[in-house]
Computed example of a mutant assay.
Amino acid sequence: MSASANAFRATALSLSIALVGGFAVAPRPAAAGAFDDPAEREARWGAIAEAIFKDRKRVDGEGVVGLEAPQRALDAALVPMTLTLSDKTPIKAIYLVIDDNPAPLAAHFEFGPAADPSRIDLRVRVNVYTNVHAVAEGADGTLYETVKFVKASGGCSAPMGMSDEEAMKGIGEMRLKLAQGESGEPQRATLMIRHPNFNGMQMNQVTRDYTPARYIRTISVSSGDAKVFDLSTDISLASNPVIGFSYRPQGEVKVSVLDSADARWDKSFPAPTAHLGD
């Protein structure tokens, strides 16, 4: 595991244990976030931001980082999030924080030379009504922040609708879908990974026991010998993750996935064939 992934793991663990409302202390009721006032939300974000960024200053991210999220989620266990970044400000990493989730730090993307970090799409679990923060880290270390309020509840404890055995079938299988685009332009891709991402809060509907946690910790994507991104994540990532991203093709695409049971899967996909858009 890389140093950055270890740092993410330590931060995520400290957040889930130390913050008021963290799962290791006491899970918040599903409706709790609906009654928080702005001052309470800001205080919670202040504590989270201090744990992640220490004393580093954050600035308004308008024009640099955008966050698209539904105001009211149709399915709290599969909430779509889109992170957008301006091409006018070089960005080396981005954090996605779901403030009132049991483990707030949901994702940390670190971009490499083959990345086109203009847009990232992913799906997450949301446990209660909550603020969601996206914080982009510029190449010079500046932190750019934006926030959205999302109405959703129960996403972290929602069962998958199938047995644990069925959910585990094909674990680690991967697919990569490439969108048609213009030759020489960044390539749009969608990565699909088969993994239940059990978070320890889901109850088996047959046995009535809680399913032990087993979730993806890191996803690394490269093209040729150049890194596209390293993603460190935790229990907030939805089951069977789907991640949309753009990159600058350097050769075949290689994906490596590591989960909390230290199982690892690696797969290579052929380099995209040059083609022109319609």
Results as ranks from 00 to 15, higher is better:
V255H: 03
N199I: 07
L13G: 05
F109K: 01
N127I: 00
A103K: 13
A69W: 00
A5W: 00
E68S: 09
N131D: 15
G63T: 02
L231M: 11
G33P: 02
P104Y: 09
S183F: 14
E173N: 12
E145A: 11
V79C: 06
R217P: 01
A49G: 09
R123T: 10
A271W: 06
K88Q: 14
A18N: 11
R214S: 09
D266I: 03
I243G: 10
T218P: 08
P38I: 07
G154C: 08
F111E: 03
Q250E: 14
L13R: 13
V255K: 06
T207R: 06
R72E: 12
G154Q: 11
K227S: 14
M203L: 12
G224L: 09
S163C: 08
M160L: 15
H275A: 14
K54M: 10
G172N: 03
I235T: 15
C156K: 07
S236G: 09
G224Q: 06
A47S: 15
V59T: 05
V206Y: 12
L191W: 02
R248S: 10
I216C: 04
A3G: 08
A139Y: 01
A93D: 10
P196L: 05
R188P: 00
V128Q: 13
A213F: 00
Y215H: 14
G22E: 02
G155A: 11
E166A: 15
S220R: 15
S118N: 12
V221W: 02
E68H: 02
E137N: 00
Y144H: 13
A31W: 04
M81A: 12
I52D: 10
P113I: 10
N197P: 09
A39T: 13
N240S: 08
A189N: 05
A69P: 00
A114R: 02
A238T: 12
R58V: 10
M203A: 08
F269T: 04
E62W: 00
S239G: 14
A189S: 07
T89Q: 12
I171K: 12
R41A: 13
D87E: 15
G21Y: 01
I216N: 02
E165T: 13
P38N: 12
S223E: 04
N199P: 07
S246E: 09
S239P: 08
A179T: 00
I216Q: 07
D266Y: 03
Q250D: 07
M201A: 14
P102F: 11
R9T: 09
D121L: 11
A158F: 12
E40Y: 09
V206T: 15
S222Y: 03
S183M: 14
G61F: 04
A152S: 09
V221D: 03
I193D: 07
Y247H: 07
G200V: 08
K254S: 09
D278M: 04
F198K: 10
R264Q: 07
S118A: 13
S118I: 12
T218N: 06
